[in-house]
Design a protein around this nucleic acid. Structure first.
Lengths: 222, 222
DNA sequence: CAGTATTTTACGGAAAACCATAATCCGTAA
DNA sequence: TTACGGATTATGGTTTTCCGTAAAATACTG
């Protein structure tokens, strides 16, 4: 079982629940942070002191307040922690149920578990901690288990995402072309952008651009 | 102080936090429901038994699981409870920070308090309960206090919302016109729809339709 | 190097969306 | 009834997007 745990979670009411879980599991050595920056710092310090954490439980979305922060989302935090301490186990604990985002957490950041905040998430969190503490198996909440097996036969790249983001920000296709040319982004012809858009619409079964942006927004891609 | 309280909140981890607040306030008679339907039923029964609740604390968004439910959101629940028992005090407790939605909760459903789930929401919830328990003042979390004073000089109507929803679902303007004509919705000419869209774009400072849908989605209007 | 495949770019016509103006309908009041 | 104002509808022209075809550039292969 884990000896030293760190929690990154901003909502105070939620924190109580997580701490209850750890107490039930008789894990006494845990810290929690309301800010990603703070959590990252604690993890770094722990490594330097030769007493690294062996589990990170992190939320994905964090509220912003007056404080100036560098790491704004749990995704970023997880990413950076994975680089800093590759062996640490990571559980994402979130209400996020968009397949795309969950899948990329497993694929890119190689999280060890994903627990969906829900009606029985406290029990699930316990299960997840148990499972990954003494094996290298992955845990994923049953409600979203389909996310990982889902194969995206069409791999979207950075440019696709950029286009979608610009579109949703009200940029016209022509303006996007201008921006791409001036910032030296590779495919920047009218046809190329159009073709990509057409492929995206095809893939997401969108009737038109408005629909496409609406769908990808819902999926949490942009 | 309140004697009998009901909580509608689906996330189990969050429930612990709220119950802690009530215990601190020495409110012992409280129930909680993970489903809106269940909460509504409890409230109805309590009225029939002549022991009505005097406070409802409700989340806004609820997860769906296998169960068939009639009331799917906290907004609906609040609305129906307000009709059923006009004198009950209602606090919305949510992460929702879109001004439009908060404002309409105060204006339409006449909630008595809005507490934003956040880094210090437990304390705020306590304050809110205190304030509204012995006065008719409204409580609103400081972070979103601006929401209520914000005056929407342009009043959107049902048709506007319908248009936006259809657009975000991939319906073309022409198709919307067809739908409006076949379902007998009043302004259904090309010009009328165009004019409305143009006004909406103007009001929301949107460059084009994609942008407009993107903005209104973010605001929680659609 | 030649030959083939893939990607990017170019072009043009069709459709949809955008925008300004003018005509029509409709309720209200003089 | 008639005049007026507001809302809806009609019309026409411009811009943007859409979509197919084809040329050019690049990458890949034997």
């Amino acid at each position: 079982m884990f000896k030293k745990v760190i929690i990154a979670e901003d909502l105070d009411a939620m924190n109580l629940g997580i701490q209850q879980v750890l107490k039930d599991l008789e894990i006494v050595d845990f810290q929690h942070s309301k800010y990603c920056d703070d959590a990252f710092l604690k993890i770094r310090v722990a490594i330097l002191q030769n007493e690294p954490y062996d589990l990170l439980i992190s939320d994905l979305s964090f509220k912003t307040d007056h404080r100036e922060v560098k790491i704004t989302s749990g995704d970023e935090l997880i990413q950076k922690v994975r680089q800093l301490q590759p062996a640490i186990k990571i559980i994402a604990y979130s209400v996020e149920d968009k397949n795309y985002r969950i899948k990329s957490l497993f694929d890119v950041a190689e999280i060890d578990g994903f627990v969906l905040k829900g009606l029985n998430s406290i029990e699930e969190l316990k299960k997840a901690i148990h499972l990954i503490s003494n094996s290298d198996q992955k845990f994923i909440s049953p409600e979203v288990a389909s996310a990982v097996q889902e194969k995206n036969n069409y791999e979207m790249d950075d440019v696709d995402i950029k286009i979608l983001k610009y579109l949703s920000a009200g940029t016209s296709q022509d303006e996007i072309i201008e921006i791409f040319k001036s910032t030296d982004i590779k495919p920047n012809s009218k046809s190329a952008i159009e073709k990509r858009l057409s492929k995206l619409k095809d893939f997401f079964k969108a009737n038109n651009t408005v629909h496409l942006v609406s769908i990808t927004k819902d999926m949490g891609i942009i």
